[in-house]
């Protein structure tokens, strides 16, 4: 099954690959994405007061992998990144979610309509071949549930993003998300509760996310594929080294972002 090439819509809707009835094969509906962006606009502008630097690194067209740090009970950081990418590039970011998300009633449908995709290898391959902009959080659920004392320390680092970048010849853009790791930390995890296949039930330290300012820092694209042929993606040593390169770049970006926040060089009152 293929679909029409990505295109901007005459009525200002974001570009997408229509599978024939106004949805792409993963269930993205650009009208729903626009509605979601409007609905969440106040959260983005007034509650978390998101600012960003380096959005010029977001490509106007073509595939790229955004790699970001992850924290905060529920993926609020992913939502702010999604909104920021739409605000600055007009593109619908395709965040890659953990596999268990597809089994969650209602959430699975809302996520599908706004462009979230379940993280199977085939799904991500299809998106990259279609020239989509995807976001991967290599810390996964370990990152979401990191304790407050571990904030801004990158947790267990998966290597799938580096493999994909090498195999599909796409750039990796590190994104430091500053603010998310203080906003809604996990107090403890109920490991016995595994609703819909989730690994645990997170109990946050506050009933709602705290209104911490978000600062997003997009780093310069890393061309991991320049150093390796596509087949090198299968070499675990090469993939691990490439993933480490991304981790180091992101850790530096986070450190710079935290320093800029301390110095008051980002954000500002609105």
């Amino acid at each position: 099954m293929t679909s029409a090439p990505a295109r901007g819509q005459p009525d200002g809707l974001p570009a997408f690959r229509d599978a024939g009835h106004g949805y792409d094969v993963f269930g993205l509906d650009p009208r729903a994405a626009r509605r979601a962006a409007r609905l969440c606009g106040p959260l983005y502008r007034r509650y978390f007061r998101v600012t960003s630097t380096g959005s010029e690194h977001l490509p106007a067209t073509g595939a790229a992998i955004l790699v970001a740090n992850h924290a905060g009970t529920l993926p609020v950081d992913g939502a702010m990144l999604w909104l920021d990418v739409m605000a600055h590039s007009g593109r619908v970011l395709r965040p890659v979610a953990d596999l268990f998300v597809a089994a969650f009633p209602i959430v699975n449908t809302v996520f599908a309509r706004i462009g979230v995709v379940s993280g199977t290898r085939q799904n991500v391959r299809h998106l990259l071949e279609a020239g989509e902009l995807i976001a991967i959080f290599p810390e996964g659920t370990t990152g979401v549930a990191k304790p407050f004392r571990e904030r801004y320390r990158l947790q267990a680092w998966r290597v799938g993003h580096a493999e994909l970048a090498i195999r599909h010849r796409v750039p990796v853009i590190p994104v430091a998300i500053i603010g998310s790791e203080e906003s809604w930390p996990v107090a403890f995890k109920l490991r016995g509760v595994r609703a819909f296949g989730a690994p645990y039930l997170p109990i946050p330290a506050s009933p709602v996310p705290l209104p911490v300012r978000y600062h997003l820092h997009y780093g310069a694209p890393l061309a991991l594929h320049r150093d390796h042929p596509p087949d090198a993606a299968d070499d675990p040593v090469i993939a691990a080294a490439a993933a480490e390169r991304v981790k180091v770049a992101l850790a530096e970006l986070i450190a710079r972002g935290l320093e800029a926040r301390r110095a008051g060089a980002v954000g500002g009152r609105r």
Partner: peptide
């Protein structure tokens, strides 16, 4: 399966 790909080859 919920954990399966959206497009089956």
């Amino acid at each position: 399966r919920a954990s399966g790909p959206a497009l089956l080859d």
